[in-house]
Design a binder for these strands. Structure first.
Lengths: 125, 125
DNA sequence: AGGTTATATAAACAAACAGTTATATAATGA
DNA sequence: TCATTATATAACTGTTTGTTTATATAACCT
């Protein structure tokens, strides 16, 4: 087995749709655990675990406000992931030979702003 | 032939340093499984499995050349991951209040071009 | 045809993961 | 002080992951 560097943790954290949705929410501003949990059909401990994963990956940090632990997004880790991807950007940018592929990618990315996913979303009853 | 492509699979595939190193190698051009396996202290089946993960994530595709299965990087999946991160770029770009954080991030990314990592690199004997 | 080379698959296994329920801790406000 | 609110931790469970060894498949070359 091998020692985890922070890119490992960052990408692993980003690989989960619930966690990406949490980040999408936090991009709009701080939120408490309750607020973050609300959209999901998942127990509170499950969300706490996701938050711990995000925190270990450096993607969020938490403060203290009375009983609440408001979460804040931490752009640094995202920037590192972005940095890593930037190495490869030449492969798809200004590559007219594969323009169709790029257009496909853009379209897919469009359909995917990663708000909470259906399977995980709490049902109104 | 190229396979499935979700952000889940893409980010999960990128979360492993061996797989990132394989992509770094493939960014220089096609390579066979043997060639890809060479730098690592890992058995050939292990590499084959990593390649399958990369293929399922749409990050590589494979051709056929006699017994060999040359691998080629597929920028589309990388572009989608990049697209997703782009949503958040404003959080760290032109953010002078946190310039120091950004500089940290850049420095870390510098130290990390993700060639094969030490722990995994085959020992010469 | 038969041996060699390149790659894939199968079975096994330990470790990590994503959930759950039940319970503990911490701070509040009445 | 006590019940309530917000969050964390523990213990458990089923699934996935990263690796191994052993074996199978596929195409080459003589």
């Amino acid at each position: 087995m091998m020692i985890a560097n922070s890119l490992d943790n960052t990408f692993a954290a980003l690989a989960d749709p619930t966690r990406r949705a949490i980040l999408a929410r936090l991009a709009l501003g701080e939120a408490t655990v309750m607020e973050l949990a609300e959209p999901f059909a998942m127990t509170q401990p499950a969300i706490s675990k996701h938050l711990k994963v995000l925190e270990r990956a450096g993607l969020i940090s938490r403060g203290r406000d009375a009983q609440r632990r408001p979460c804040r997004i931490e752009p640094k880790a995202l920037a590192q992931a972005d940095m890593w991807l930037a190495q490869y950007r030449r492969l798809w940018e200004s590559n007219f030979q594969r323009l169709d592929d790029l257009l496909d990618a853009l379209q897919l990315a469009e359909a995917m702003p990663d708000s909470p996913r259906n399977e995980d979303v709490k049902q109104e009853k």
